[in-house]
């Protein structure tokens, strides 16, 4: 089973006629994602990879009422507008791939989405994949394999690295979510941990954190305080990062004395979470946890 994304989830691609949008539409269709429509303002009536293009999300949903999810490939300056449009058109899940959105814009659309009960994944993220069913993102599908471990990550390629190691070790994933590398993600660790807790087919969870902010510490507290019922294995990237320097991701920065890797690793250990020192150790820690 899975969370967030299923085989039957109907998808609209916003920014479908762009270079990234069309490239990944093809890849997602190839994986089996049920893409019903695309949107690019002013390009309604065209087709991309056989998918009909509309001028607005509202028009796309009028023609395809089964659309419940959107994936956004719109450039940073126009992405917030695309998010608001999707929220008001009634989409329930929005994956924002776009990198470089000003954080004040993200702060607003993330709050607006919450007020409307809409789930946002991202921005600046690889998206969501439910292996063997559907992918709503830019990740290489072949490194994932259907299984019963949930993956939640602040990273892209590092997630692929870890998923690949798991897959080779015969450990598949129920759903893997890259929540994005920006300071304010639409959905954080705790909300996704909660969803995995309720998913009967998820037996364990991998959390891939990194420096910056205190999301890992809060997740650790949640795991300890809620008596989380499933084993959690974590990895935290950025032990070598100096304070005040942004390590690639807008959110990967130790600032105002908050966000270093040691504090996060300590918080996880105190909460009884197994912490891998190297990404390659995750499959082994998972095997042990799943046997227990």
């Amino acid at each position: 089973m899975a969370i967030l994304l299923r085989k039957e989830t109907g998808v609209v691609v916003q920014g479908i006629t762009g270079r990234e949008g069309s490239f990944h539409t093809k890849a997602m269709l190839g994986y089996g994602t049920r893409i019903l429509a695309g949107v690019t303002p002013g390009k309604g009536g065209q087709e991309v990879e056989g998918v009909p293009v509309y001028d607005s999300v509202v028009e796309a949903r009028e023609s395809h009422p089964e659309i419940t999810a959107s994936i956004i490939f719109v450039p940073a300056r126009f992405a917030p507008d695309a998010v608001y449009e999707a929220i008001e058109a009634g989409v329930e899940l929005i994956v924002v791939i776009t990198e470089g959105i000003p954080v004040h814009d993200t702060m607003r659309f993330v709050r607006y989405a919450r007020m409307n009960g809409v789930t946002i994944i991202g921005p600046n993220c690889p998206g969501v994949i439910t292996p063997g069913e559907s992918k709503l993102g830019i990740m290489p599908g072949h490194v994932f394999k259907k299984g019963n471990v949930g993956v939640i990550s602040r990273s892209g390629t590092l997630t692929y690295e870890i998923a690949y190691a798991m897959t080779r070790a015969g450990i598949g994933q129920s759903t893997a979510i890259g929540i994005g590398g920006d300071p304010i993600p639409g959905t954080g660790f705790i909300e996704l941990l909660r969803m995995f807790e309720e998913d009967p087919e998820t037996h364990a969870v991998v959390l891939i954190g990194e420096i910056g902010g205190d999301m890992e510490e809060r997740a650790a507290r949640y795991i300890a305080d809620s008596g989380y019922s499933k084993p959690v294995v974590a990895y935290v990237a950025g032990r070598t990062a100096p304070p005040g320097k942004r390590m690639g991701h807008a959110g990967a920065i130790i600032s105002m004395g908050v966000g270093d890797a040691e504090s996060k690793i300590r918080a996880f250990k105190e909460a009884g979470v197994q912490v891998a020192e190297l990404p390659s150790q995750i499959p082994e820690l998972l095997s042990k946890a799943l046997k227990r």
């Binding site: 990550s153 990273s155 390629t157 590092l158 997630t159 690295e161 590398g181 070598t240 390590m247 690639g248």
Partner: peptide, 12 residues
């Protein structure tokens, strides 16, 4: 390639 992988590589 990728910020997370770069950090993890440095950590390794």
């Amino acid at each position: 390639n990728g910020a997370g992988l770069t950090m993890a590589t440095m950590d390794t």
